[in-house]
Each structure stands twice: as structure tokens, then as C-alpha cells.
Amino acid sequence: MAEATSLWAVVALPPVLVVAAATVAAVDARPGTGGVAGTGREVLRLLVQQRRSTNASDRLLLRGGVILLPMAALLAAAVVPFGFTSVSDLPDGVVWFNAMEALAWAAVWLTGWGPNSALSMIGGYRFLAQGLAYEIPHMLALTTAALGAESLRVGAIVDAQAGLWFALWMPVSFVVYLASALAMAFWGPFDQPVGSDAAGGAGVELSGVDRVLFLGGRRLLLTVAAAVSVPLFLGGGHGPLLPGWAWTLVKTAAVVALLLWVRRRLPVLRMERWTAVSWMVLTPLAIAQALLVALVVLGR
């Protein structure tokens, strides 16, 4: 059972997540950029850099989008249990996570639109197309996990996995979830919205602190998406010997490592191809998985 937390957890959550996302960024940095120190230097350089501005940009919407991306990731993290304790174990935690992650759609589109630049706008539109591609099987995967625990509360989903992990008897949902975690953070094979073929897509015109917030927010979102897979499919804090928080850390690190490995191994996937695969292959599979779980739940 997830316990309620005190106020310090609310204060501690953002810095903890930022450190986690920075670690992910440093581990994943391209060879030759200097690893942890190089990433830190780059962030500091961007923070003191004067921001460029473009002609006739919509500054309000641009700033709104840039700030919204890390905000959405942080708000989504509020329902993620660390061990068995989350900042807020909402009765509709799964829906909350889904809603906050949807705010990233608005954030990326706004960031792409704001600078009044063609390549940047193309990036924003690409993310919407990608969102429409991944969202349907993604929602079905979330629904299946909630169905297995007969609750939308993330804490209850963790409790339901004291015995068997959901990843083991809902493998399709788990794989679909991992794929959409990459897609929602426009990462690895799904990085077309900020793809180098569009000179950096939605992020092309960003500089200074805007760039730190946007690209950092993207890594936050990846980290949070990976962290959510642990309570939903990998048994949360359940595990032998180690305490709950340690299992959460180990499992989250393993999922992040898997996602980073996928990034190195798979080529970039165009969103229209992913739409076809997602709608015609993954959606029926995810529905079949949900049906199977529903039958098991009804039969219990």
C-alpha cells in the first residue's frame, strides 16, 4: 500500500528528478563531448548565453511551450511511487500520468510554432503526428495494467504485483508501453520531431535557458516515462532482500539502460511508418491483450 508523504517529498521531487535526468543525459552523451563534465559545461554555457530571437516570433507561446515540457514531466512524476511512497497516490493516478504526458503534445507544438521558423514548425507538427500514432496503443497498455489491478490508483497496481509482475503476463502491453515511452519523449528511433534532417526540428531556434529547459525537459520526460513502467509492469518496489526504494532505483535504471541501448541499436523511424504499424499491428494486439487480462480478472 502506498503511503502518504510529507511536504518534503514535494520539495525533494524536482531536484531528484533533475539529477536523474542529468545522469541519463551524461551517460548518453556522444563520445567526445566529455561525459558528465562535458554535459555540465554545456548546460552552464547555455545558462549564461544570451538568447537569440527570431523575427516576428510569438514569444509568449514559445516560452509557454518551453516551460510546459519539464513541468508536465514533473507533474507526471507526482504519482510515481519511490519504493511504496509517492508524492500523491491519486485515486486516478494512471489517468493523471496520461493527462500530464499529453501536455507534452501542446508543449512541443508550441515550442515548434513560437519562433516563426519553418523547420521548427515542421518539428512541432511531426510530434503531433507521432503523438496520434503512439497514443492509441499506449492508452490501451495503461488501461490493461489498471484492469489487471482493477484500480486506476498506481499504489494499488503495485500491490497487485506482489506475486507476479504484470510484465510477465501482459508482455504485449509492456512492450507497447516501452515503445510509447520512447515516442512520448521523442527519443531514439522516434526523435524525428527534433531530427537532424530538419536541422533540429522543434528545438532549432532555441538558445540559452530555453534550450536547457526544452532538451532537459525531454530527458526528464524520458526518465519519468521509464520510472512509470516500474510500478505499472515491473512490480514497483517489490523484490527480495533489498528495500522498496532500492528496487525502484534498480528497476528504473534497468529500464533507462534498455531505452538508451535501443537508441543506439535502432535507426530512426518516420512517424507515418510508425502510425501504420501502431494502428494496424499494435492496436489489435493491445486490444487482444486487454481482452485476455479482462477474462482473467473476470474469472478470478
Binding site: A99, W105, A106
Partner: peptide
């Protein structure tokens, strides 16, 4: 929460 979810996606597509 469902309103947040649906309206965000709807407005993004609407844009």
C-alpha cells in the same frame, strides 16, 4: 483529469 487529457489532445489536434 480526463477533461485535462482529452482537451489537451483535442486542442493540439485542433491547432
Amino acid at each position: 483529469v480526463v477533461t485535462v487529457l482529452m482537451m489537451t489532445i483535442e486542442m493540439a489536434v485542433m491547432a
